[in-house]
């Protein structure tokens, strides 16, 4: 195996490992919250990580039809984030509502 092919194979593995770490960290934020916009932001970031996975798999297998899937996934992610933002706006604030004097707990929870 030529050194450049070796380098490419090693970088694919490193990229997959780093993307997995990013994916798991983002899943942790989605699960933890604490508010709905945080979770929507985490889902948006998950779509970005999935697009990165698709790019690496497309290079690794040489099956470049995956680019179309990446574009479609980006479109779906954009529309989902926009729809969730409209939902946040329509729903109003229903979480983190505490009696007076306890708002500080919500603000301090990061």
């Amino acid at each position: 195996m030529r050194p450049d092919e070796l380098f490419l194979a090693a970088s694919e593995l490193i990229a997959l490992a780093l993307l997995s770490a990013a994916f798991l960290l983002t899943v942790y934020r989605v699960v933890r919250g604490p508010t709905l916009p945080d979770r929507i932001l985490g889902l948006d970031m998950l779509v970005a990580a999935a697009i990165g996975f698709i790019a690496v798999i497309g290079i690794r297998t040489g099956y470049t039809l995956y680019v179309d899937i990446a574009i479609a996934l980006g479109l779906v992610g954009f529309l989902a984030t926009v729809a969730f933002a409209r939902f946040v706006l329509a729903r109003g604030k229903t979480e983190g509502v505490l009696p007076p004097g306890r708002e500080r707990e919500v603000r301090d929870r990061t």
Binding site: L8, L18, A21, G52
Partner: peptide, 21 residues
């Protein structure tokens, strides 16, 4: 070489974004 370097750079940015989140 360029593809491998860009893959590592891109996944490093993804990790930085996840840490920032």
């Amino acid at each position: 070489y360029l593809t491998g370097a860009l893959l590592i750079i891109g996944s490093a940015f993804a990790v930085v974004a996840a840490i920032g989140i």
